[in-house]
Write a protein that binds this DNA or RNA. Sequence first.
DNA 1: GAGCACTGC
Length: 720
Amino acid sequence: MPSMTSSDSAQRQSNHNTDVNQLKKLKAEPFARRQKIEQHRKSLPIAAVEKVLLEEVRNNDTLIVVGETGSGKTTQLPQYLNNGGFCRNGGIIGITQPRRVAAITVAKRVAEECGVALGQQVGYAIRFEDVTSRSTRIKYMTDGLLLREALLDSYLSKYSVIIVDEAHERTVHTDVLLGLLKTVQKTRSQGVSDAVNIDHREAKNGMLLEKHNGSEVASILKQCRGKKLSPLKIIIMSASLDARVFSEYFGGARAVHVQGRQYPVDILYTRQPETDYIDATLITIFQIHMEEGPGDVLVFLTGQEEIESVERLVHERLPQLSESKRKLLTFPIFSSLPSEKQMKVFMPAPVGFRKVILATNIAETSVTIPGIKYVIDPGMVKVRTYEASTGIEPLIIIKTSKAQALQRSGRAGREGPGKCYRLYPENEFDKLKDSTTPEIKRCNLSNVILHLKALGIDDIIGFDFIEQPDRIAIIKSMELLFLLGALTEESKLSDPVGQKMARLPLDPIYSKALIIASQFNCLEEMLIVVAMLSVESIFYAPREKLEESRIALKSFASPEGDHLTLLNVYRASEEFLQKSNLVNSKEKAEKNLRKWCKENFINSRSVKHARDIHSQIRRNAEQMGFHVTSCGDDLLPLRRCLAASFFLNAALKQPDGTYRALSSGLTVQIHPSSVLFRMKPDCIIFDELVRTNHNYIRNISRIDYLWLAELAPQCYALQE
DNA sequence: GAGCACTGC
């Protein structure tokens, strides 16, 4: 699957200025192609109900659209609304997606269907990338991005319609957005009288913004005071057959069902429950290979370890088959797999060969692999959970939900009729939960709370969520925010600390670290550390090259800990890139950087991501008036700032070499990947606590015990 | 002396 690069986006941005050329190109476009697009649009199931849909949207403020895969709802409905006059008076139709790739690919498709250049009437916006312009009327975006926009414009006043797509996935962002939209819709329909009440908060946000963006804020304020806000239309789109939850949440909103277009998939169950689903998976793979016609196989497993062991077992058993039957190739895919290896699943198998794709959940929604005819679903999934009492978020393996099983089997019917092998008996299916527990019920809520508070929503427990999060989880997260100084004793967002933390797109602890660092002249360094902590693992150590990777790591290692080590890695990569830039083109320099990363056992995707985050938060920090200064060679202030922000994650060495986490009282161990694994300093702070065989802490720095009482007196007092 | 699903700002 083609991935976006920043150079792509730069090119697209420059396209905005070449309308004339675009027009010429469009005029020259073959008539046949346009006709083909029109034909395709008319053939979609949703086309049959275009008039009904427009009528329903005109007559109702909120509408639920239930459409299965292939209905065309995501690409067509916004076009219908645009043609139906819903963008009159300059209103924008916003469509939110849970994933970035979806926002990009759908926007591209719709721009093509409309015959316009991407970024003009049709565009998209995701983090780090805004491909929209003043003329954009249909805007695809991630739901998280719209939530961010709401912090600057709490009425979402530029949108006439907001469509929340894939609402059935129930991500945290979707759930918070639904709650917000409900409030915004109410306020906007009440019009100008109530708007005045919120002006106070607008003004407060405005204060923060004025330094860099006074005109934008002024215009929002003017909009709110001067004119009556137009009502907001909300459309919730879901693929789940049960629209009731959404309908009830929006006061009995009407629901329209749109036919999907999928090929039939035969569902096969086992007669008996399987005791070992890995073994059952293997048997099924070979059964399909020996007995079924051509077509590739997609197997859903829970994680990297399972994928690698199934792959090994398949190759062990393959030689037992007759030579003509050995034409079977396996391809693993999971998110942490380097992208060049991920790409391989998209390549067609050589003639006569059958591809077996061993995938995690990534193949459920995030990537669509062509050629799949058979799906093997053992019915298990690995999910992150949240323990409010300890704050740990352990990963556990559980049974899938019915909705998930349906989603998986649907992967076999995209190009023709298919088969799905569920490795459990049919009566087990009936016992599965209808849908997956919404993320908001199993995650840390500190960011959600910070966000809602910044939107002026103070009563979190009383907030009208579509599904209420755990009361205890809310209270725990509020406690954390209070200890970080983001909330006052009255649970109000503090000014300026809480206000500033809410504006940064980071974990609250990281935001706090930036605020403290700005006061101790080491913001330059902290911006790098926080960016590096925000991405997936920076180092990778393939089993076969363990020793080599260890030597590579040593050249960056700091005796003070992992935070300074990450700083060293970032600086080394920057230095390499700058030197390379002097003698190479930008593309060549980036390619060289990837090579440098590989040689040093560093994940180049993570470094790229960290650089993007770094430039974003650096800009944010400057906009908020922070002084980005460096502490130079003396990194003591940086370590003190780490202690002052990560004080809740402090741990003390015990006589047996394990550590005691001070706030939770848990016994923890330094993860073997840490540079401090052997050093074992007396007092440390850590970034993260993960539970596997032990309670492991990761990303650790040595600190002085006395700093805790000095820098976090709200938590620690010196004992006599 | 270890292995962590997937997203997102």
